[in-house]
Each structure stands twice: as structure tokens, then as C-alpha cells.
């Protein structure tokens, strides 16, 4: 369970969001026009942007509490983030990118886990490729594999289909649902595409001019 209530003032823009997301395979959508504050909300949950006040709680763990002065750094939040541009490390291979996501483990165990992710995410044969040698869909799978290799407690997906064309989108949507079906934690998908979130998500939160409740 992820509970979010945050506000932040940025120039004349006011962000005021409260939402909650259940776990267990049910995706929550955060939908709204561009510039409404969708990405900023995700960044605040991940700890990449600091709100002015409010509270973020994940599975009983307080990630942020404005009044108590709690603000865990991003690296301690254990929240997976799939970036719009995928943000794969350009100088590392697919394999190395995925291994990066793993917490401290023995080498043998880590290699086995990387191999397992490579299989699950249909990346076999691409282990030694670098991100620029992959197609858009492959990059997305590699980025998602890297996120999930880290065993995050929650998953944030920022416009995962904005970089692909319509035809591929239908395939990737199906793939994403299948790959995420095993993910037990809360999952928030950000999108500006209403029909898309209606196909993919079980609950929908609308955000407009920074406001969502």
C-alpha cells in the first residue's frame, strides 16, 4: 500500500496531490495533460524531488513526512522508477545494466539472478549489447528488468509508451501487463492517454493543473 499526500510550490505552479495505490497486480493510473504535474509527483515519491510538505508512506514505512522532518534519500526508498527515456546506462551492456539494480549479493547468485531476468524479460542474445544497439521495445524491457532486479517495494512507470509507435504500443502493453503480473507491490502508471490507462489500470486518479485528490 502506497499513500501519498504532498504539496509543492514551484514559481506560480502549485502541486497538491493525494493518492493511494494498492499492491497485488492492480495498477493505479495517474492521468492528465502534459504539464499537470504527473512526473513531478512520481519524482517526489521516488525522492528525486523534495515536496514542501505532506506525507508519503509505503507499506508502513514513512518515506517522507514534512511535519516530522523525515525525508529519506532516493537510494534508501527502494522505489523502482521506469523513466520515459528508460535511462539505461549508455556505457554498460544489458547484462551490466541489470546487475546494477541488484543489491549486494555473492557473485554467483547475482549472475544467476541476472540470467533469470534476461530470460523472463525476453532479452536472451542481447546480454552483451549496449543500449544504443537495442530497439525501443528492447530498451524498455531491459530498463524494466533493471528496476525489478532491485526488488523494489513499489514501481513507478513514467509514460512507458510515449517513445513507441501505435503498432508496437499494443504489443508492449500486453507484454508489460504480463511482466508486471508477478509484481506484488503498488504500481503507479503515469500517462496522458485516457484509453491506454483504461485498458491497463484498475483505478484511475486524474491530475489537472497540479491538483489531484
Amino acid at each position: 500500500m502506497l499513500d501519498v499526500r504532498i504539496d509543492k510550490q514551484l514559481g506560480s505552479f502549485q502541486l497538491d496531490v493525494s493518492l493511494s495505490a494498492e499492491g497485488a497486480g492492480a495498477m493505479t493510473a495517474l492521468v492528465g495533460p502534459s504539464g499537470a504535474g504527473k512526473s513531478m509527483t512520481l519524482k517526489a515519491i521516488a525522492g528525486l524531488v523534495h515536496p514542501d510538505g505532506g506525507r508519503i508512506e509505503l507499506g508502513g514505512r514513512v518515506l517522507y513526512d514534512g511535519t516530522r522532518g523525515i525525508d529519506l534519500p532516493a537510494r534508501e526508498r527502494n522505489v523502482g522508477y521506469l523513466f520515459q527515456s528508460y535511462a539505461l546506462f549508455p556505457t554498460m551492456t544489458v547484462e551490466q545494466n541489470i546487475a546494477c539494480g541488484m543489491r549486494m549479493r555473492g557473485r554467483a547468485e547475482r549472475d544467476a539472478r541476472v540470467a533469470e531476468k534476461i530470460r523472463t524479460f525476453h532479452l536472451s542474445g542481447l546480454e552483451k549489447r549496449r543500449p544504443h544497439q537495442l530497439s525501443g521495445g528492447e530498451q524498455q524491457r531491459a530498463a524494466l528488468a533493471r528496476c525489478l532486479a532491485n526488488d523494489p517495494e513499489a514501481l513507478l512507470l513514467d509514460e512507458p509508451f510515449s517513445a513507441v509507435d501505435e503498432e508496437l504500443k499494443a504489443i508492449l502493453e500486453g507484454e508489460l501487463l504480463e511482466l508486471l503480473s508477478a509484481f506484488p507491490g503498488p504500481c503507479i502508471l503515469v500517462s496522458h492517454d485516457r484509453p491506454e490507462v483504461e485498458r491497463l489500470c484498475s483505478s484511475i486518479v486524474e491530475i489537472r493543473d497540479g491538483h489531484a485528490r
Partner: peptide, 27 residues
């Protein structure tokens, strides 16, 4: 340098010095 890469590493639990040596300098 694309700061998104550093943000991605942070969400993966990486330290600032890891980001500097393993992502930023190689890029």
C-alpha cells in the same frame, strides 16, 4: 550529462560516488 541517468542510479540505491565513477565519468 543527462541527469536522468544519475536519478535512475539513485532509485536503484546507488551512492553519489558510485554514480560519479561508474556512470558520469564513463559517459
Amino acid at each position: 550529462f543527462d541527469e536522468t541517468l544519475a536519478d535512475a542510479a539513485r532509485t536503484l540505491g546507488k551512492s553519489e560516488s558510485w554514480i560519479f565513477w561508474r556512470v558520469k565519468l564513463p559517459a
